[in-house]
């Protein structure tokens, strides 16, 4: 008797589920569009349009050398077309958050994604510490500009990407390959030297 009741319960649940499934199929199928087969002439036109679109997309890709930065693997690739010319281990943003205890400001230390470009290059760059660099250390924000300046921490070269983000050198070479920065991309000295010869103002930098 108990077995029969259990079986009936299972069948009822099964039946309800089937009914729901059938309902779902009917409702979801209503929006589906059916296509007719194309004629040979219109197929030729479609193929031509296909080729044109591929060409238009291809024309959008960077001309010449460009950089691709993989923030997940902390790698930088120097590329030309489909070819990878060089692979470099870097450090990218930690993704950490810093809140200003004194106010409403918040900083999220991500390396920005998307396509950027090298806007300027500096040799022997000097770091002008922003407010977050003091807040992070629990220090007071200096009133004088000269108290913000720190030399010899950004390596021999810096490539500015806009909004304060840079590709630059680092003292912390043991941390290369890890997500440790405040958003900038850090490169080891030897690789930075080689990059400096390759990168120019306007070089595209794709970051993902």
């Amino acid at each position: 008797m108990k077995k029969k009741i259990l079986l009936i319960i299972i069948l009822v649940i099964f039946g309800i589920f089937l009914a729901l499934e059938a309902c779902g199929i009917y409702l979801s199928g209503r929006g589906n569009v059916s296509y007719k087969t194309e004629s040979v002439k219109s197929l030729k036109n479609l193929n031509s349009k296909n080729t044109n679109l591929k060409k238009l997309i291809s024309n959008l890709s960077p001309k010449g050398t460009y950089l691709v930065i993989d923030t997940a693997k902390n790698m930088l690739y120097v590329k030309k077309g489909e070819q990878t010319l060089k692979e470099v281990v870097v450090s990218t943003g930690s993704g950490s958050i810093l809140n200003d205890p004194a106010g409403n400001r918040q900083w999220i230390f991500d390396t920005p994604r998307g396509e950027l470009s090298v806007q300027s290059k500096t040799t022997n760059p000097v770091w002008t510490k922003p407010d977050w660099a003091f807040i992070e250390e629990g220090e007071e924000i200096p009133k004088s500009y000269k108290d913000r300046v720190e030399k010899d921490v950004l390596g021999d070269y810096a490539f500015h990407l806009g909004d304060g983000y840079m590709i630059h050198g680092t003292l912390y070479t043991r941390l290369l390959g890890r997500n440790v920065t405040h958003g900038c991309v850090r490169v080891g000295d030897a690789d930075l030297e080689k990059l400096n010869k390759t990168v120019s103002i306007g070089t595209k930098v794709i970051i993902f």
Binding site: L46, N47, N50, I57, L60, G114
Partner: peptide, 27 residues
């Protein structure tokens, strides 16, 4: 996966869509 016969048309739709996004400096 719903299938239909107009493969070329589908490819064009894909390329059209990609062109719209690829024009922007995004991934």
């Amino acid at each position: 996966i719903p299938q239909h016969s107009a493969g070329t048309k589908d490819e064009i739709d894909l390329l059209d869509a990609e062109l719209k996004v690829a024009k922007k400096p995004v991934i």
